[in-house]
Design a protein around this nucleic acid. Structure first.
Length: 587
RNA sequence: GCGCCCGUGGCUCAGUGGAUAGAGCACUGGCCUCCGGAGCCAGGGGUCGCAGGUUCGAAUCCUGCCGGGCGCGCCA
């Protein structure tokens, strides 16, 4: 209906333009919105206000001219000019109740665009380092990516989801080192475990497996280990960090002397695979589904990094300085140039990432979306710059930054830090509050907002908890339809003009907005529009249900009300589906 | 210091340049002989951080300032 009115306005304007009484107009400038207040009709347009200047006519006069020129239509009861020059459309009852038949006819397809009709999108998300289990910080990215992929699919995009496995680089060496040191402890060695190595129990588990399988094969005396740094009292934090980093490097070097490169690689691979399996399992349990798992190591071995650097070199965007190779990212909007090859000959992560993004773009997606934590925002400019330098349109890459989530239980703040091994894992969070509530809470705020995740609220089984509120509305309708006999509600269309109560009008209007909400959630990459909508719809239903008896004796009224309830259930179901949340039949 | 994000009832947050700025929580008072009370209804509570500007119209766009978060490595 909204699209229809938009077309009518455009057509009418163009006709008046051809007749010479109005100037030209661009399609985007004609807006029509569902009204917030029923006093303003069902739909309203502000075009007379917006375009009065161009037309050189007073807004109200312009509005009248357009109203008079609009063709009559059986769905439109009347058109009014209000306020400074709004054009308000009032639909007749029949047009409003059509929505119910449409919803029941299309079922779970209602609100969905034809698959693949809007282009191809790749969403890369989570991509956490395999150095520990996923924690609640990763959870937010996982929820956002997973919900967005479902919303995009509903919006008509062909969507693929991808996880980039950071299985190369120094992090992996630190991981292997952490495992090896724990292994030495299991061999009976006694020494101070480095503070900046990975502390978590999962490291111990991997070490125990290795110890069981390989016995004392990689054993070496603790007395040969490089001594830990002695940090003088009052030393700067930064100096301490550097000292710890250097110590780790010495330890890694030492390990290389003690065991063969092959064995070291084997420890690294075992640790990485074990953690990746755990990550995959956690994501699967969370409902985050991936189509592709791309390995950084494989990418590096494929020769793509050399190729892409050669391409940049050829285009003159690289230069040497102080033994390193730099990319001239400052020419492409970054604040300074960035190293792509270190003076020790190794690529930086950035170099690999350029190759990775070049690959993604070459695979032919219209849009490539990355979901990153807010702490990475400074990184986007150089990546965009590299894409531009490669002759691609940098706008095909879109980076969504998700702000941090803090976790609390009532007043108590819960800490999280991978290195210290003290964090709430995503798995533990789900165990405690369930997948549905976890997903809903993660996406109910805009991604740019800091999220205050309250475990106490999320575990409450009451109306305070929005997940239960929405699910309860669904369960309630299911029970109602069961009681009435399913057949009655889903049978052939009945006379919906019986729906005259204010609550029934409100519900029909709310239902009609669903497709717009889905489109908006997709175009703004904002699943929270869905959570808000569902809460409102559930609220309207609860209010209606409390005020009006559905199962009355008059057959016509009863059938119409059941049919309305059935349509509400369908939309609750469709909306929850977009969030990957269950729509239970009973609770 | 520079860059990005955020300042909206006591709290957590919606808000697409539009009509009287909205929810939920908390608070106060009501509603089950009734389709699920895991629910509903009513009420109080606001300088939309501050100051300019653009506009017929600004919480929304622009500039400056104030406050909070994050980032500013030959780490990933």
């Amino acid at each position: 209906m909204k699209a229809f009115l938009h077309a009518q306005l455009l057509e009418t304007w163009q006709r008046l333009h051809t007749e010479g009484s109005l100037p030209e107009v661009q399609e985007e400038r004609i807006e029509i919105t569902a009204t917030r207040d029923a006093k303003h009709g069902d739909y309203a347009s502000n075009l007379a206000l917006a375009l009065a200047r161009d037309a050189d006519i007073l807004p109200r006069k312009l509005a009248e001219q357009i109203r008079d020129a609009l063709p009559e239509h059986p769905d439109i009861q009347r058109i009014e000019i209000a306020g400074p020059g709004f054009i308000n459309f009032y639909l007749n009852e029949h047009a409003k109740s059509e929505i119910i038949d449409q919803i029941l006819e299309q079922g779970d397809q209602y609100g969905r665009e034809p698959a693949g009709s809007r282009g191809r999108v790749l969403i890369e998300y989570v991509s956490a380092n395999p150095t520990g289990p996923l924690h609640i910080g990763h959870g937010r990215g996982a929820a956002l990516g997973s919900c967005l992929s479902r919303i995009f699919a509903a919006g008509g995009y062909a969507v693929e989801c991808e996880y980039f496995i950071n299985d190369a680089g120094r992090q992996m060496d630190i991981l292997a080192l952490s495992v090896w040191l724990r292994y030495l402890e299991l061999c009976g060695e006694d020494f101070a475990f480095p503070r900046s190595a990975y502390q978590g129990d999962y490291i111990l588990d991997i070490a125990a497996d290795l110890h069981r399988e390989h016995q004392r094969r990689w054993h070496t005396g603790a007395d040969t280990l490089p001594p830990p740094p002695t940090s003088p009292a009052g030393a700067e934090k930064e100096a301490k960090t550097n000292a710890n980093d250097t110590h780790l490097d010495l330890l890694i070097e030492h390990a290389h002397e003690q065991i063969s490169g092959e064995d070291w690689a084997s420890i690294r691979t075992t640790a990485c695979n074990t953690l990746m399996k755990r990550i995959e399992r956690d994501l699967e349990g969370f409902g985050a589904v991936f189509d592709n798992w791309r390995s950084e190591r494989e990418l590096q071995n494929s020769g793509q990094v050399e190729a892409v650097l050669a391409q940049l070199e050829e285009a003159g965007h690289l230069y040497e300085r102080e033994g390193a190779t730099w990319f001239r990212s400052s020419h492409f909007g970054d604040e300074k140039d960035r190293v792509v090859r270190r003076s020790n000959g190794q690529w930086t992560y950035f170099a690999t990432d350029i190759a990775y993004h070049a690959e993604k773009l070459n695979r032919g997606y219209d849009t490539v979306i990355n979901i990153w934590g807010a702490d990475h925002h400074g990184y986007a400019a150089r990546l965009r710059g590299a894409i531009e330098a490669l002759g691609e349109n940098p706008n095909r890459l879109e980076v969504l930054f998700v702000q941090f989530a803090t976790l609390r239980r009532g007043e108590e703040q819960l800490p999280m830090s991978t290195r210290e091994g003290e964090f709430v894992t995503l798995h533990a969070l789900q165990q405690e509050i369930g997948r549905d509530a976890t997903r809903f809470f993660y996406v109910m705020r805009g991604a740019t907002q800091h999220l205050d995740f309250d475990l106490r609220l999320a575990t409450q089984k009451s109306a305070d908890n929005p997940v239960y509120y929405v699910q309860y509305a669904h369960a309630r309708i299911c029970r109602l339809l069961e009681r009435a006999g399913e057949g009655e509600a889903t049978s052939s269309p009945c006379d919906l003009s019986e729906l005259r109560e204010p609550g029934e009008q409100a519900l029909q209007k709310q239902l009609a907005q669903y497709p717009d909400i889905v489109q908006r959630a997709a175009s703004e990459r904002s699943p929270h529009h869905i959570t808000h909508y569902l809460r409102n719809l559930a609220g309207d239903f609860h209010a209606y249900y409390n005020a009006t008896t559905v199962l009355v004796d008059e057959t016509g009224v009863r059938q119409a009300r059941l049919r309305l309830a059935c349509a509400v259930r369908q939309i609750l179901n469709n909306g929850l589906e977009l969030l990957g949340i269950n729509a239970p039949e009973s609770m």
